[in-house]
Design a protein around this nucleic acid. Structure first.
Length: 436
DNA sequence: CAAGTTTACCCT
DNA sequence: AGGGTAAA
Protein backbone atom coordinates (compact mmCIF):
# COMPACT_ATOMS: atom_id res chain seq x y z
CA UNK A 1 0.00 0.00 0.00
CA UNK A 2 1.38 3.42 -0.81
CA UNK A 3 2.10 5.62 2.14
CA UNK A 4 -1.17 7.34 2.99
CA UNK A 5 0.38 10.76 3.09
CA UNK A 6 -1.93 13.73 3.04
CA UNK A 7 -2.18 14.85 -0.55
CA UNK A 8 -0.41 18.07 -1.34
CA UNK A 9 -2.83 20.87 -2.06
CA UNK A 10 -0.96 21.86 -5.19
CA UNK A 11 -2.82 21.12 -8.40
CA UNK A 12 -1.06 18.58 -10.59
CA UNK A 13 -1.68 17.28 -14.09
CA UNK A 14 -0.78 13.62 -14.36
CA UNK A 15 -0.96 11.30 -17.32
CA UNK A 16 -0.87 7.53 -17.43
CA UNK A 17 0.35 6.29 -20.80
CA UNK A 18 -0.34 2.70 -21.77
CA UNK A 19 1.09 1.17 -24.94
CA UNK A 20 -1.65 -0.73 -26.80
CA UNK A 21 -1.07 -4.52 -26.89
CA UNK A 22 2.58 -3.62 -26.78
CA UNK A 23 4.35 -6.87 -27.63
CA UNK A 24 2.12 -7.23 -30.68
CA UNK A 25 2.99 -3.71 -31.83
CA UNK A 26 6.69 -4.43 -31.41
CA UNK A 27 6.34 -7.54 -33.57
CA UNK A 28 4.27 -5.68 -36.15
CA UNK A 29 6.97 -3.06 -36.44
CA UNK A 30 9.54 -5.80 -37.02
CA UNK A 31 7.27 -7.54 -39.53
CA UNK A 32 5.12 -4.85 -41.18
CA UNK A 33 3.22 -7.44 -43.19
CA UNK A 34 1.50 -8.35 -39.91
CA UNK A 35 0.00 -4.88 -39.51
CA UNK A 36 -3.77 -4.90 -39.68
CA UNK A 37 -3.88 -8.69 -39.38
CA UNK A 38 -5.02 -10.68 -36.35
CA UNK A 39 -1.84 -11.24 -34.37
CA UNK A 40 -0.88 -12.59 -30.97
CA UNK A 41 2.46 -13.06 -29.25
CA UNK A 42 3.10 -16.39 -27.55
CA UNK A 43 5.75 -17.51 -25.21
CA UNK A 44 7.71 -20.42 -26.53
CA UNK A 45 6.27 -23.57 -25.17
CA UNK A 46 5.56 -26.61 -27.24
CA UNK A 47 2.78 -27.67 -24.88
CA UNK A 48 -0.57 -26.89 -26.55
CA UNK A 49 0.97 -24.29 -28.79
CA UNK A 50 2.42 -21.97 -26.16
CA UNK A 51 0.71 -19.31 -24.09
CA UNK A 52 -0.60 -16.00 -25.47
CA UNK A 53 0.86 -13.08 -23.58
CA UNK A 54 -0.34 -10.29 -25.87
CA UNK A 55 -3.25 -10.15 -28.29
CA UNK A 56 -3.77 -7.54 -31.02
CA UNK A 57 -7.12 -5.81 -31.48
CA UNK A 58 -8.02 -7.63 -34.70
CA UNK A 59 -7.46 -10.92 -32.91
CA UNK A 60 -9.50 -9.81 -29.89
CA UNK A 61 -12.42 -9.18 -32.23
CA UNK A 62 -12.47 -12.83 -33.19
CA UNK A 63 -12.36 -13.99 -29.60
CA UNK A 64 -8.69 -14.54 -28.84
CA UNK A 65 -7.90 -13.81 -25.21
CA UNK A 66 -4.76 -13.29 -23.24
CA UNK A 67 -3.81 -16.49 -21.36
CA UNK A 68 -5.29 -18.71 -24.07
CA UNK A 69 -3.05 -21.47 -25.32
CA UNK A 70 -1.87 -21.02 -28.89
CA UNK A 71 -3.88 -24.02 -30.08
CA UNK A 72 -7.08 -22.70 -28.54
CA UNK A 73 -6.48 -19.28 -30.08
CA UNK A 74 -6.00 -20.83 -33.52
CA UNK A 75 -9.21 -22.75 -33.04
CA UNK A 76 -11.33 -19.63 -32.51
CA UNK A 77 -9.40 -17.55 -35.04
CA UNK A 78 -7.95 -19.69 -37.84
CA UNK A 79 -6.33 -16.69 -39.59
CA UNK A 80 -4.43 -15.76 -36.46
CA UNK A 81 -0.74 -14.95 -36.83
CA UNK A 82 1.21 -16.27 -33.88
CA UNK A 83 4.60 -14.75 -33.18
CA UNK A 84 6.98 -16.32 -30.70
CA UNK A 85 8.84 -14.38 -28.06
CA UNK A 86 12.57 -14.63 -28.83
CA UNK A 87 14.44 -17.33 -26.93
CA UNK A 88 17.87 -16.92 -25.43
CA UNK A 89 19.59 -19.46 -23.21
CA UNK A 90 16.46 -21.60 -23.50
CA UNK A 91 14.34 -18.92 -21.90
CA UNK A 92 11.86 -16.32 -23.13
CA UNK A 93 13.86 -13.16 -23.80
CA UNK A 94 11.88 -9.98 -23.29
CA UNK A 95 14.70 -7.57 -24.04
CA UNK A 96 13.38 -6.33 -27.38
CA UNK A 97 10.17 -5.24 -25.64
CA UNK A 98 12.08 -3.63 -22.81
CA UNK A 99 14.21 -1.69 -25.27
CA UNK A 100 11.15 -0.64 -27.26
CA UNK A 101 9.63 0.65 -24.02
CA UNK A 102 12.78 2.68 -23.44
CA UNK A 103 12.36 4.33 -26.85
CA UNK A 104 8.90 5.47 -25.80
CA UNK A 105 10.09 6.78 -22.43
CA UNK A 106 12.80 8.76 -24.19
CA UNK A 107 10.13 10.61 -26.17
CA UNK A 108 7.72 11.08 -23.26
CA UNK A 109 10.41 12.45 -20.98
CA UNK A 110 10.69 15.53 -23.18
CA UNK A 111 7.47 16.93 -21.68
CA UNK A 112 7.73 15.98 -18.04
CA UNK A 113 8.87 13.74 -15.24
CA UNK A 114 8.53 10.05 -16.16
CA UNK A 115 7.99 7.01 -14.00
CA UNK A 116 8.24 3.69 -15.74
CA UNK A 117 5.50 1.67 -14.09
CA UNK A 118 5.98 -1.48 -16.14
CA UNK A 119 7.36 -2.62 -19.46
CA UNK A 120 4.49 -0.88 -21.29
CA UNK A 121 3.17 1.77 -18.90
CA UNK A 122 4.46 5.18 -17.89
CA UNK A 123 3.25 7.85 -15.51
CA UNK A 124 3.99 11.36 -16.68
CA UNK A 125 3.78 14.57 -14.63
CA UNK A 126 3.03 17.37 -17.08
CA UNK A 127 2.10 19.98 -14.47
CA UNK A 128 4.89 22.40 -15.37
CA UNK A 129 4.35 22.13 -19.12
CA UNK A 130 0.61 22.61 -18.62
CA UNK A 131 1.21 25.74 -16.56
CA UNK A 132 3.41 27.18 -19.27
CA UNK A 133 0.67 26.59 -21.81
CA UNK A 134 -2.08 27.93 -19.59
CA UNK A 135 -1.39 31.60 -20.27
CA UNK A 136 -1.79 31.15 -24.02
CA UNK A 137 -4.88 31.22 -26.17
CA UNK A 138 -5.85 27.57 -26.43
CA UNK A 139 -8.18 27.98 -29.40
CA UNK A 140 -5.23 27.95 -31.80
CA UNK A 141 -3.37 25.20 -29.92
CA UNK A 142 -5.91 22.39 -29.78
CA UNK A 143 -4.60 19.86 -32.27
CA UNK A 144 -6.78 17.43 -34.16
CA UNK A 145 -5.64 14.67 -31.84
CA UNK A 146 -6.35 16.71 -28.70
CA UNK A 147 -9.85 17.52 -29.92
CA UNK A 148 -10.65 13.81 -30.10
CA UNK A 149 -9.98 13.40 -26.38
CA UNK A 150 -12.77 11.80 -24.40
CA UNK A 151 -13.93 13.76 -21.38
CA UNK A 152 -15.63 11.89 -18.58
CA UNK A 153 -19.01 13.44 -17.77
CA UNK A 154 -18.84 15.91 -20.64
CA UNK A 155 -22.23 17.62 -21.02
CA UNK A 156 -23.67 16.44 -24.32
CA UNK A 157 -24.18 19.91 -25.74
CA UNK A 158 -20.45 20.63 -25.45
CA UNK A 159 -17.74 19.32 -27.79
CA UNK A 160 -14.22 18.53 -26.55
CA UNK A 161 -12.69 21.58 -28.17
CA UNK A 162 -15.40 23.83 -26.75
CA UNK A 163 -14.80 22.35 -23.30
CA UNK A 164 -11.06 22.98 -23.65
CA UNK A 165 -11.54 26.60 -24.70
CA UNK A 166 -14.53 27.64 -22.63
CA UNK A 167 -13.76 30.93 -20.94
CA UNK A 168 -15.43 30.16 -17.60
CA UNK A 169 -13.37 27.03 -16.88
CA UNK A 170 -11.95 26.64 -13.38
CA UNK A 171 -8.18 26.80 -13.07
CA UNK A 172 -8.23 23.05 -12.44
CA UNK A 173 -10.12 22.27 -15.63
CA UNK A 174 -8.06 24.72 -17.64
CA UNK A 175 -4.80 23.11 -16.55
CA UNK A 176 -6.25 19.70 -17.35
CA UNK A 177 -7.11 20.91 -20.85
CA UNK A 178 -3.55 22.18 -21.26
CA UNK A 179 -2.24 18.83 -20.07
CA UNK A 180 -4.43 16.99 -22.53
CA UNK A 181 -3.12 19.07 -25.41
CA UNK A 182 0.44 18.30 -24.36
CA UNK A 183 -0.29 14.60 -23.95
CA UNK A 184 -2.04 14.40 -27.31
CA UNK A 185 0.94 16.03 -28.99
CA UNK A 186 3.51 13.83 -27.32
CA UNK A 187 1.47 10.74 -28.21
CA UNK A 188 1.67 11.81 -31.83
CA UNK A 189 5.42 12.27 -31.42
CA UNK A 190 5.65 8.76 -29.98
CA UNK A 191 3.83 7.44 -33.03
CA UNK A 192 5.99 9.40 -35.45
CA UNK A 193 9.26 8.42 -33.82
CA UNK A 194 8.61 4.85 -32.69
CA UNK A 195 5.59 3.75 -34.79
CA UNK A 196 3.78 2.74 -31.59
CA UNK A 197 0.30 3.85 -30.63
CA UNK A 198 -0.64 4.37 -27.02
CA UNK A 199 -3.65 5.32 -24.96
CA UNK A 200 -3.58 7.79 -22.10
CA UNK A 201 -5.53 9.02 -19.14
CA UNK A 202 -5.14 12.61 -17.96
CA UNK A 203 -6.26 13.65 -14.50
CA UNK A 204 -5.15 15.41 -11.33
CA UNK A 205 -3.57 12.34 -9.75
CA UNK A 206 -2.06 8.95 -10.56
CA UNK A 207 -5.04 6.90 -9.48
CA UNK A 208 -7.49 8.72 -11.75
CA UNK A 209 -5.00 8.87 -14.62
CA UNK A 210 -4.49 5.13 -14.44
CA UNK A 211 -8.20 4.49 -14.17
CA UNK A 212 -8.98 6.56 -17.25
CA UNK A 213 -6.19 5.43 -19.56
CA UNK A 214 -8.03 2.19 -20.15
CA UNK A 215 -11.44 3.72 -20.83
CA UNK A 216 -10.91 4.31 -24.54
CA UNK A 217 -8.44 2.07 -26.32
CA UNK A 218 -6.59 1.78 -28.55
CA UNK A 219 -4.83 5.02 -29.52
CA UNK A 220 -7.13 7.38 -27.65
CA UNK A 221 -7.02 9.48 -24.51
CA UNK A 222 -9.45 10.26 -21.73
CA UNK A 223 -9.65 13.17 -19.29
CA UNK A 224 -11.15 13.11 -15.82
CA UNK A 225 -12.27 16.55 -14.64
CA UNK A 226 -12.74 16.79 -10.88
CA UNK A 227 -16.43 17.43 -11.35
CA UNK A 228 -16.84 13.96 -12.86
CA UNK A 229 -15.08 12.03 -10.12
CA UNK A 230 -17.95 11.52 -7.72
CA UNK A 231 -20.36 9.95 -10.19
CA UNK A 232 -17.56 8.05 -11.91
CA UNK A 233 -16.57 6.34 -8.67
CA UNK A 234 -20.11 5.89 -7.40
CA UNK A 235 -20.80 2.82 -9.53
CA UNK A 236 -17.25 1.71 -10.25
CA UNK A 237 -16.45 -1.83 -9.04
CA UNK A 238 -13.60 -1.65 -6.53
CA UNK A 239 -11.61 -4.21 -8.51
CA UNK A 240 -11.02 -1.53 -11.16
CA UNK A 241 -8.90 0.46 -8.74
CA UNK A 242 -5.20 -0.31 -8.58
CA UNK A 243 -4.35 -2.58 -5.62
CA UNK A 244 -7.99 -3.53 -4.97
CA UNK A 245 -8.01 -6.23 -7.63
CA UNK A 246 -6.83 -8.93 -5.24
CA UNK A 247 -7.16 -10.00 -1.65
CA UNK A 248 -7.81 -6.57 -0.15
CA UNK A 249 -10.67 -5.98 -2.59
CA UNK A 250 -12.19 -9.34 -1.63
CA UNK A 251 -11.92 -8.56 2.05
CA UNK A 252 -13.64 -5.24 1.49
CA UNK A 253 -16.53 -6.95 -0.22
CA UNK A 254 -16.73 -9.82 2.26
CA UNK A 255 -16.39 -7.80 5.46
CA UNK A 256 -18.07 -4.51 4.59
CA UNK A 257 -20.24 -5.47 1.63
CA UNK A 258 -18.42 -2.89 -0.47
CA UNK A 259 -18.88 -3.52 -4.17
CA UNK A 260 -18.29 -0.10 -5.67
CA UNK A 261 -15.87 2.66 -4.76
CA UNK A 262 -18.91 4.76 -3.86
CA UNK A 263 -19.94 2.17 -1.26
CA UNK A 264 -16.76 3.03 0.62
CA UNK A 265 -17.93 6.59 1.29
CA UNK A 266 -20.14 5.61 4.19
CA UNK A 267 -17.26 4.41 6.36
CA UNK A 268 -15.27 6.79 8.52
CA UNK A 269 -11.53 7.02 8.17
CA UNK A 270 -11.18 5.68 11.74
CA UNK A 271 -13.36 2.66 10.95
CA UNK A 272 -11.32 1.84 7.84
CA UNK A 273 -8.07 2.29 9.76
CA UNK A 274 -9.42 0.09 12.49
CA UNK A 275 -10.07 -2.74 10.08
CA UNK A 276 -7.20 -2.45 7.62
CA UNK A 277 -4.47 -0.59 9.48
CA UNK A 278 -3.70 3.13 9.59
CA UNK A 279 -2.01 3.31 6.23
CA UNK A 280 -4.43 1.25 4.20
CA UNK A 281 -7.40 2.77 6.02
CA UNK A 282 -6.47 6.32 5.15
CA UNK A 283 -5.61 5.27 1.63
CA UNK A 284 -9.06 3.69 1.22
CA UNK A 285 -10.81 6.75 2.65
CA UNK A 286 -8.98 9.01 0.20
CA UNK A 287 -9.49 6.62 -2.70
CA UNK A 288 -13.26 6.67 -2.16
CA UNK A 289 -13.09 10.42 -2.77
CA UNK A 290 -10.76 10.27 -5.74
CA UNK A 291 -7.95 11.70 -3.64
CA UNK A 292 -4.43 10.39 -4.20
CA UNK A 293 -1.21 12.14 -3.32
CA UNK A 294 1.28 9.67 -4.77
CA UNK A 295 4.01 11.56 -6.60
CA UNK A 296 5.24 10.56 -10.02
CA UNK A 297 8.69 9.21 -9.25
CA UNK A 298 11.50 10.40 -11.48
CA UNK A 299 12.61 6.93 -12.50
CA UNK A 300 13.03 5.51 -15.96
CA UNK A 301 15.41 2.70 -15.05
CA UNK A 302 14.49 -0.49 -13.20
CA UNK A 303 15.41 -1.01 -9.55
CA UNK A 304 16.27 -4.66 -10.09
CA UNK A 305 16.87 -7.23 -12.78
CA UNK A 306 15.68 -10.76 -12.55
CA UNK A 307 15.76 -13.88 -14.59
CA UNK A 308 13.57 -16.83 -13.79
CA UNK A 309 11.91 -19.91 -15.15
CA UNK A 310 9.26 -22.33 -14.03
CA UNK A 311 9.54 -26.10 -14.35
CA UNK A 312 5.95 -27.29 -14.14
CA UNK A 313 4.84 -30.79 -13.43
CA UNK A 314 7.06 -33.54 -14.78
CA UNK A 315 9.73 -31.07 -15.79
CA UNK A 316 10.53 -30.28 -12.17
CA UNK A 317 14.27 -30.45 -11.48
CA UNK A 318 15.24 -33.42 -9.35
CA UNK A 319 19.00 -33.32 -9.26
CA UNK A 320 21.54 -30.77 -8.17
CA UNK A 321 23.18 -31.07 -11.59
CA UNK A 322 20.09 -29.87 -13.43
CA UNK A 323 19.55 -27.11 -10.90
CA UNK A 324 23.10 -25.91 -11.46
CA UNK A 325 22.63 -26.20 -15.21
CA UNK A 326 19.60 -23.89 -15.04
CA UNK A 327 21.27 -21.57 -12.58
CA UNK A 328 23.94 -21.10 -15.21
CA UNK A 329 21.37 -20.36 -17.92
CA UNK A 330 19.67 -17.83 -15.66
CA UNK A 331 23.00 -16.34 -14.65
CA UNK A 332 23.97 -15.87 -18.30
CA UNK A 333 20.90 -13.83 -19.08
CA UNK A 334 21.16 -11.89 -15.86
CA UNK A 335 24.80 -11.10 -16.55
CA UNK A 336 23.93 -9.76 -20.00
CA UNK A 337 21.53 -7.33 -18.45
CA UNK A 338 23.97 -6.33 -15.72
CA UNK A 339 26.63 -5.68 -18.37
CA UNK A 340 24.19 -3.56 -20.31
CA UNK A 341 23.20 -1.59 -17.23
CA UNK A 342 26.86 -0.92 -16.49
CA UNK A 343 27.76 0.20 -19.97
CA UNK A 344 24.61 2.23 -20.59
CA UNK A 345 23.85 3.63 -17.17
CA UNK A 346 27.08 3.17 -15.22
CA UNK A 347 25.24 1.17 -12.57
CA UNK A 348 26.15 -2.01 -10.68
CA UNK A 349 23.95 -4.30 -8.58
CA UNK A 350 25.07 -5.18 -5.07
CA UNK A 351 22.73 -7.93 -3.96
CA UNK A 352 22.00 -11.33 -5.43
CA UNK A 353 18.85 -13.16 -4.39
CA UNK A 354 17.82 -16.64 -5.38
CA UNK A 355 14.30 -17.91 -5.08
CA UNK A 356 13.40 -21.54 -5.51
CA UNK A 357 9.91 -23.03 -5.49
CA UNK A 358 10.11 -26.64 -4.43
CA UNK A 359 8.20 -29.79 -3.76
CA UNK A 360 9.60 -31.49 -0.71
CA UNK A 361 8.42 -34.92 0.37
CA UNK A 362 5.82 -34.64 -2.39
CA UNK A 363 4.21 -31.52 -0.99
CA UNK A 364 4.34 -28.17 -2.73
CA UNK A 365 6.12 -25.64 -0.61
CA UNK A 366 8.20 -22.56 -0.92
CA UNK A 367 11.82 -22.94 -0.10
CA UNK A 368 13.22 -20.03 1.81
CA UNK A 369 14.87 -17.25 -0.05
CA UNK A 370 18.50 -16.50 0.60
CA UNK A 371 20.64 -13.64 -0.45
CA UNK A 372 24.32 -13.07 -0.71
CA UNK A 373 25.83 -10.39 1.44
CA UNK A 374 25.88 -7.13 -0.48
CA UNK A 375 28.58 -8.46 -2.70
CA UNK A 376 29.01 -6.32 -5.77
CA UNK A 377 27.87 -8.36 -8.73
CA UNK A 378 30.72 -7.84 -11.09
CA UNK A 379 32.40 -11.19 -11.10
CA UNK A 380 30.72 -12.66 -14.14
CA UNK A 381 28.58 -15.68 -14.78
CA UNK A 382 30.70 -18.26 -13.00
CA UNK A 383 30.69 -16.24 -9.83
CA UNK A 384 26.92 -15.76 -9.97
CA UNK A 385 26.47 -19.49 -10.46
CA UNK A 386 28.85 -20.29 -7.63
CA UNK A 387 27.11 -17.88 -5.26
CA UNK A 388 23.61 -18.95 -6.18
CA UNK A 389 24.49 -22.63 -6.02
CA UNK A 390 25.89 -22.16 -2.57
CA UNK A 391 22.79 -20.25 -1.48
CA UNK A 392 20.54 -22.90 -2.97
CA UNK A 393 22.27 -25.81 -1.29
CA UNK A 394 22.40 -24.06 2.02
CA UNK A 395 18.71 -23.13 1.99
CA UNK A 396 17.63 -26.54 0.73
CA UNK A 397 19.63 -28.30 3.39
CA UNK A 398 18.24 -26.15 6.17
CA UNK A 399 14.75 -26.52 4.86
CA UNK A 400 14.94 -30.29 4.47
CA UNK A 401 16.41 -30.89 7.88
CA UNK A 402 13.66 -28.75 9.36
CA UNK A 403 10.90 -30.51 7.40
CA UNK A 404 12.11 -34.03 7.87
CA UNK A 405 13.92 -34.16 11.16
CA UNK A 406 15.05 -37.66 11.99
CA UNK A 407 15.35 -38.87 8.41
CA UNK A 408 18.53 -40.13 6.91
CA UNK A 409 20.51 -37.64 4.87
CA UNK A 410 20.19 -39.77 1.73
CA UNK A 411 16.40 -39.93 2.09
CA UNK A 412 16.19 -36.18 2.46
CA UNK A 413 18.27 -35.33 -0.54
CA UNK A 414 16.37 -37.66 -2.86
CA UNK A 415 12.92 -36.28 -2.11
CA UNK A 416 12.93 -32.74 -3.41
CA UNK A 417 12.00 -31.29 -6.78
CA UNK A 418 12.42 -27.70 -7.96
CA UNK A 419 9.45 -26.25 -9.84
CA UNK A 420 10.71 -22.72 -10.24
CA UNK A 421 14.00 -20.83 -10.04
CA UNK A 422 14.77 -17.17 -10.23
CA UNK A 423 17.77 -14.94 -9.72
CA UNK A 424 17.36 -11.29 -8.85
CA UNK A 425 20.06 -8.62 -8.83
CA UNK A 426 19.07 -5.58 -6.80
CA UNK A 427 20.52 -2.69 -4.79
CA UNK A 428 21.57 -1.18 -8.06
CA UNK A 429 23.71 1.88 -7.55
CA UNK A 430 25.59 4.30 -9.72
CA UNK A 431 29.19 3.23 -9.81
CA UNK A 432 31.61 5.85 -8.56
CA UNK A 433 34.01 7.18 -11.16
CA UNK A 434 37.10 5.04 -11.37
CA UNK A 435 40.30 6.95 -10.81
CA UNK A 436 42.74 6.60 -13.64
C1' DC B 1 1.57 -32.27 -14.67
C1' DA B 2 0.69 -26.86 -17.09
C1' DA B 3 -0.05 -19.50 -17.98
C1' DG B 4 5.06 -17.50 -17.60
C1' DT B 5 8.09 -13.76 -16.55
C1' DT B 6 9.05 -9.58 -14.47
C1' DT B 7 8.88 -5.71 -11.34
C1' DA B 8 7.51 -3.11 -7.19
C1' DC B 9 6.40 -2.59 -2.60
C1' DC B 10 4.03 -3.43 1.99
C1' DC B 11 4.29 -5.74 6.50
C1' DT B 12 6.71 -7.51 10.30
C1' DA C 1 15.98 -9.74 5.91
C1' DG C 2 12.32 -12.42 4.44
C1' DG C 3 7.35 -13.36 3.38
C1' DG C 4 3.55 -11.99 0.87
C1' DT C 5 0.53 -9.29 -2.47
C1' DA C 6 -0.43 -7.18 -6.80
C1' DA C 7 0.03 -5.87 -11.45
C1' DA C 8 0.99 -6.17 -16.41
Amino acid sequence: MPLARRPASRIRVIAHVDLDCFYVQVEQRRQPQLRGKPTAVIQYNSWKGGACIAVGYEARKCGVKRSMRGDAAKAVCPDLNLVQVPVLHEKADLSIYRDAGSEVVAVLSRVGKCERASIDEVYLDVTEAAKRLSSKDLSTLVSEEASTSHIVGLPQELGTKEWFCRPDASREDHLLACGAIIVADIRLAVLAETEFTCSAGVAHNKMLAKLSSGMHKPAQQTLVPSSAVESLLATLPISKIGKLGGKLGQELEGELGVKTVGDLLQFSEVKLQDMYGPNTGTWLWNTARGINGDEVQDRTLPKSHSSGKTFPGPRALKTLETVVYWLKELAETLQLRLDEDLSQNNRTAHLLTIHASCHIEGRATEAPKFSSKSRPLRYGVDKIVEDSRYLFERSLHEFCSHQSAGKEQSEITSSWAVTGLSLTASNIMAKPMVKT
